[in-house]
């Protein structure tokens, strides 16, 4: 069963200044299906359009053409947004607020029952290994801890799909491992995870399938196990496929 379906999605940015005419094609004719319960990694060079595609899935950007269906519905539907979680790249939180206050705010946005809110917050803090830090102000948090708090807010509603934009960005090697373990644990609980990343070694360890977005288009989608049969690792596959495309062009 597909939980995300993109059909012929194209996004063209209009120039910000009205006197300029040049339009920028961010992504072109994207067709992609994400299955329930899988971990899907979207790979691509800087500026390939990965974040644009994720933002279109989330309704933060509107496609110029094409359609996106999440749970066979549109993301505009509030009920659908109740079923998803999202963490942006390098999430930022006001430094004078406490971790608990931030999660309390997001819990209210999810309309979580006040009776279970405290337990829910403690539960997600435990998942991201921030238990005992709920009363710390954000200014005392490292970049990695802020990243984990970003993940915690995305888990408050017990989402069926998690969208993670560069979830390991800015982390140290220990942070990579911790995030990877969290993703694996969440996937074991049946959650679908869609994420963008540059850190291919980690993608290789957690993903079921990967897609490569290059020069605005999806040029390949394959299960990880098949890739690893033909290539020594994901990095090798990625460099080969990008170089092949260069030759074709």
């Amino acid at each position: 069963m597909n939980v995300i379906e993109a059909k012929n999605v194209t996004k063209i940015y209009k120039p910000l200044d009205f006197w300029k005419k040049e339009k920028i094609v961010a992504i072109r004719n994207i067709n992609l299906e994400i299955k329930k319960g899988e971990v899907f990694g979207l790979l691509g060079l800087n500026g390939a359009g990965k974040t644009t595609l994720m933002k279109i899935f989330l309704g933060l950007l509107k496609p110029t053409s094409g359609t996106v269906r999440i749970f066979n519905d549109t993301i505009e539907n509030r009920k659908i947004r109740e079923r998803i979680g999202y963490m942006s790249e390098l999430p930022y939180f006001p430094k004078y607020l406490k971790a608990y206050e931030i999660l309390d705010y997001f819990a209210d946005l999810f309309n979580i029952d006040p009776k279970i809110k405290k337990d829910k917050i403690n539960e997600v803090l435990e998942i991201v290994r921030l238990s005992g830090r709920q009363n710390f102000k954000i200014k005392a948090f490292s970049k990695g801890m802020q990243g984990r708090l970003g993940l915690a807010q995305a888990l408050l509603n017990d989402p069926e799909i998690l969208f993670l934009d560069e979830p390991m960005s800015g982390f140290d090697p220990l942070g990579y491992k911790e995030t990877r373990d969290i993703i694996i644990e969440l996937n074991k609980k049946g959650k679908t995870i869609f994420f963008n990343s540059h850190i291919l070694s980690e993608v290789e360890k957690v993903c079921d399938r990967v897609g490569v977005l290059h020069r605005k288009e999806i040029i390949d989608v394959q299960p990880i196990d098949q890739i690893l049969k033909k290539h020594k690792n994901l990095e090798d596959y990625f460099i080969n496929i990008i170089n092949d495309e260069k030759v074709k062009k």
């Binding site: 933002k55 989330l58 309704g59 933060l60 509030r78 009920k79 947004r81 109740e82 998803i84 999202y86 963490m87 942006s88 999430p91 930022y92 939180f93 006001p94 997001f106 946005l109 999810f110 309309n111 970003g150 807010q153 995305a154």
Partner: peptide, 16 residues
């Protein structure tokens, strides 16, 4: 915070 630090995207995707 909303525009430079991009905090708004994590709020707008919530069911609000």
């Amino acid at each position: 915070e909303e525009t430079e630090l991009k905090t708004i995207s994590m709020v707008i995707v919530k069911p609000i």
